Simulated assay, not measured.
Amino acid sequence: MNLLTFRATRLMALLALSLAVSACGLPRSGPNKTELYKSSVTEGGSAHFILVDSRVSKLAGGTPALGFSSSFKNAGRVGSDTINPGDELSITVFENVKDDPLLGNTGQRVSALESVQVDGEGFIFIPYAGKLQAAGQTPDGLRQLITSKLDAQTPDPQVTVQRVAGDGQTVSVAGSVGAQGIYPIERPTRTLSAMIARAGGVAIEPSVAVVRVTRGNQTGQVWMQDLFANPSLDIALRGGDQIVVERDQRAYTALGATGAQSLVPFESQSLSALESLAQVGGLSTTLADPTGVFILRSESASVANAIMGRDDLRGSQRMVYALDLTAPDGLFEARDFQVRDGDTIFVTEAPFSQWTKAVNAVTGTAGAADSLTSIGSSD
């Protein structure tokens, strides 16, 4: 047998062995396009396959809208001179009598009531004036009320009322801020952005920061970037508000022939399919099929009906959005299609990748066998 015939015979043997190895099932990152399409409803499966275009991107995309309800937005700022439950007041009464003052001892014309606490219901107690509603009033209004109550018992009393702004009106600031803690609502910190600044600002990237405010049984949240860009979102604070700054919790799963296979957090408010692929290192140059990029998602019936031009779908629908990056507008469509929280991005392997794996497996085995034969011959 001449050398040419020997090489041809060996090549044929390698090809046959490669086909046999390939048929045995080599390791791979997931189903190929043909296998994936078998899950389509047209093939008896449960998923709707949709080729992404500009219309689909518009209907299926969108960043979750965050914001505050009207009850948050319409709440006016706490006045710096408004008395609130929990405030401490300093009240002084000057009496125009020497021998028998109403509040002080004999010869004492000035009576100072230090640290008068406004109770949880907004009341204070003043001797001879009784229980008075203080919360909601200004110091001057409370002064007039106390004066009117004492006037009938001591001649022409002169009353002063002082309040330390912010005492009793506090908010809690927690999460990813410079200094977590309880802070009073004072004149410079009566709005959300000012209070966050008072707490040292955000300690994470503003692009992924979400600010949540809980007031009673209501909760609202806003993107940190939107808070600075839109003044209407910079709500006035109320005593007892709970402010939490946290990282955006949204994430997607990247699988298949990508640079990395993992659960990936969002790095911005909006994230396109192209950006999401870039986050995981792009497509594997040795394995990926750029015509087989899929986004798997559970879609609401309303969105699914709109995309498919139907009105009979009910309940959550399994949708598979298909992208062909080699198409004339493929990269633009991938740039425009918005990934959402919980999506799975799957990139199929190119058809030749299994053949390449099979050849590498066979040639690697053959090379090892040749090495062993060489070692045996040298002995």
Results as ranks from 00 to 15, higher is better:
N84L: 14
G25D: 09
A60P: 02
D167N: 14
A65W: 11
L103S: 02
I126S: 02
G216I: 01
A194Q: 10
D119Y: 05
S284R: 07
V173N: 01
G86K: 08
D87V: 06
D341I: 08
R10P: 14
F346N: 00
V211W: 00
N217M: 13
V93F: 06
G330C: 03
D370L: 12
L271M: 04
S374D: 12
L287E: 03
D289I: 06
Y321D: 00
V78S: 09
L192D: 02
G259C: 00
K149Y: 09
V347W: 01
L331S: 05
A174Y: 12
G45I: 06
I91F: 00
S71Y: 09
A361E: 05
T147H: 13
A13G: 07
A322C: 14
G107F: 11
N96E: 10
F68D: 00
Q279R: 13
G120L: 13
L4W: 10
G61C: 02
P184T: 07
S378E: 13
L263E: 15
P351M: 03
R187W: 15
V159R: 00
R215P: 04
T154Q: 10
F337N: 02
P328N: 06
M319W: 02
S284A: 05
F68T: 07
L11D: 12
G120P: 07
G122R: 04
V56N: 02
V21E: 07
T147M: 12
P31V: 07
A251D: 13
V320Q: 06
A135N: 05
E267P: 08
V213M: 02
A334I: 01
D379R: 14
D81M: 09
P265I: 03
Q169G: 12
V339F: 01
L142S: 03
A306P: 05
I182N: 13
T285W: 11
E275K: 03
